[in-house]
Amino acid sequence: MEKGKKRLAVLVGCNYPNTQYELHGCINDVLAMREVLVKRFGFDPQNVELLMDAPGSPVLPTGTNVKAALDRMVDRAEAGDVLFFHYSGHGTRIPRPRHKLPLWQDEAIVPCDFNLITDMDFRHMVNRLPKGSSFTILSDSCHSGGLIDKEKEQIGPYTALCDGGASLSHAPRTIPFNSLLHHLSSLTKINTSDIGTHLLECFGSEASLRFRRTLEELDAPIDLPVKPDEGILLSGCQAEETSADMSPSAAAAGGAGKAYGAFSNAVQIVLRENAGRRLSNREVVAAARAVLRAQGFAQHPCLYCSDENADAPFLWRPEPAEE
């Protein structure tokens, strides 16, 4: 493949087997996405890295391993490259005490070892992209709206009406903050409600950047993108919502043969029903919303990116204009 035209992907599926947080459809989600990437979008299988917590998996999706895979992908990127990260697993929200400012909440994904990867980590990855490349994140997890810190909302709670549906029976892909705190404190044996203390004790320099900075640094404006960037987030729900994980029995009742994540499955349906068309990021999210609404799910997928990328083709880089 010619220089600057690579398609690189990291796919992460966390089912948390044999734990109280076990899910069922996450590995199925990323296996289905790998097939679509190769067959429809022209990804070289050698450029699609898969991390799963299935028995016998060679590389587990720990926080360190996921960040290392993403860093390798970003480091390889050149102008014109398409980067893609699909995460299917639990998400959470972390209270952030802000220096002289009201309490805030950060969005995070939950790798299999609970070493959280936060919206700040994704912001810094996006800020490292070479000009002319793109980094699309599809996160089928609870509280995933806003997972790229400070990315512009295109479809979401402030830009689209929330058309509620009748909620189906499902397991939410969320681990509440108090459950995270209890789990981590049982490992560290430290009596504190500061989750950052526990994460730093467990993971040290491999903990999220969010927990390795002071309150003053967290509030500093250096994290703001100085101009529209190439980060694109398709989230399974709004920041305050949960995403559905359909168990095998629930999936069978809905006419599917195996477990799946509601948002991942909706995206697959949209792509199948539009075979041969280059859908924009906006079209994919809007159509996935319609699929979920028709299926009776209450979650609302969102889109966060620049104005230009909202209408750019999903997982394609437009050819640069001739000068």
Rank of each mutant, 00 (worst) to 15 (best):
R213E: 13
E273N: 14
T188L: 08
D229R: 14
F177K: 08
Y260C: 06
A207D: 02
I175W: 05
A253H: 11
P228K: 12
D219G: 14
H198P: 02
L187G: 04
H198S: 03
P228G: 11
E241N: 09
S235V: 06
A252S: 10
I175N: 09
L180I: 05
L233I: 10
L181E: 00
L218C: 10
F177A: 09
F211M: 09
L187C: 05
E201R: 13
K189V: 06
A259E: 06
T188V: 07
S179T: 09
N178K: 12
D194C: 00
P248F: 04
N191S: 10
G261Q: 02
Q268I: 12
E241K: 04
L209N: 03
T174N: 08
F263C: 04
A244P: 01
G204W: 02
A251K: 00
L271V: 07
Q238H: 07
I190M: 15
K189H: 15
L215T: 07
D223K: 02
D223F: 12
E241A: 05
P228R: 15
L168S: 10
L218W: 09
A252I: 04
I232G: 07
E206L: 03
S208R: 03
L181N: 03
S205V: 12
N265R: 14
R173G: 07
G196A: 14
I222T: 15
R272Q: 13
S185Y: 01
K258R: 08
S264T: 06
P176T: 05
D229I: 08
R277E: 13
E273W: 02
G254A: 05
C202M: 15
P228M: 14
S249N: 12
A244M: 08
